[in-house]
Design a protein around this nucleic acid. Sequence first.
DNA 1: ACAGTACTTGACCATTTGGTCAACAACAAC
DNA 2: GTTGTTGTTGACCAAATGGTCAAGTACTGT
Lengths: 183, 183
Amino acid sequence: MARPRKFDEAKVKNALRDVFWQHGYDGASYADIMSATGLNKGSLYASFGDKRALYQHAISDYNRENVSPGIAMLRDNTLTPRERLNTFFTSLVNAAETREGRWGCLLCNAAIDQAPFDQDVEETVSASLARIRKAINYCVKDTPAADKADLIWTSYFGGHVMVKAGYSKAVLKKVRTQIVSLL
Amino acid sequence: MARPRKFDEAKVKNALRDVFWQHGYDGASYADIMSATGLNKGSLYASFGDKRALYQHAISDYNRENVSPGIAMLRDNTLTPRERLNTFFTSLVNAAETREGRWGCLLCNAAIDQAPFDQDVEETVSASLARIRKAINYCVKDTPAADKADLIWTSYFGGHVMVKAGYSKAVLKKVRTQIVSLL
DNA sequence: ACAGTACTTGACCATTTGGTCAACAACAAC
DNA sequence: GTTGTTGTTGACCAAATGGTCAAGTACTGT
């Protein structure tokens, strides 16, 4: 059954996600991708397809490893809605002070620089945003903020724009406080 | 005193702003820029500088022509705060259904795809975001939403992410309703 | 040991990228 | 009309881009 793969697929996918997360689609060249994954173009093409396909893999990976845990937390009934929202927006506060944080949110980045030019990306991204929207809705549905779910939702992504713009932790903390005070 | 310029500087700057607004920094090639402005590289270099400088001009133009009027409106005391916020978020609703609207917000786009890699862009963009923040603060300072200004602020930019992701008018209308209901 | 198969490598390709420059053109001052 | 200055043009460049492929390699099954 032929020569086995030399690389760890999960690690390569993580590396792929990180490169695109950090540099965006246009900003990530094959030079970047190759050095991040440790594979060269031939192998990448054989295993995953062209650059667009690599990007899609990156988004899928982000959904699985970064988005889904957040959604699960928002739906975790062992915590109060307030605790859940607080945790959710704390990830934003922390983003403002870590190196990875400055990468922002891959969904947000993809929405802005690729969704208008690639229908597959648009669909994947908006589906994922919709999942988050529903999770927030679920989280606040029995609270005084039940009718403000979409406001909370958009504000989360707006916060990621602020992180990318270089705003400090303090500003994001204010946003978190104001969100939590809704319920 | 020598040969006069053949082009209308204001028109060229508008064209410049639109190209970068629509395609982003990396996405806009000189081919795009030349056909949009009607000038060729030599003239662009002589008049404005390199590509980075062109981008800076685009952001300045956006600030002057697109951001400042909104800020003036938010500070217009002849309107009620509710009217002002409603108008501000209506621009978001309208964005969701026009072609230009799908370009999103240039500040938002610049924050995401260039701010982390270009300190000048970061400074220009975050200064502009700060102006908007102050205007919203001013607008709501004597209302029940006085302590929710930053929430309104981030939510506005989050809304632009949704527009880019392809969300319909209906969703943005919900956000607007929820914002206005804060005061 | 051999053959078959799948993975890996790096050289190679056409195209596009941002950027430069020498030649030319159009005006103002005299 | 001549001169000096500035604007415009398009050919040109090196570097980088995404993508391909023939050759070599490492494993499995027999």
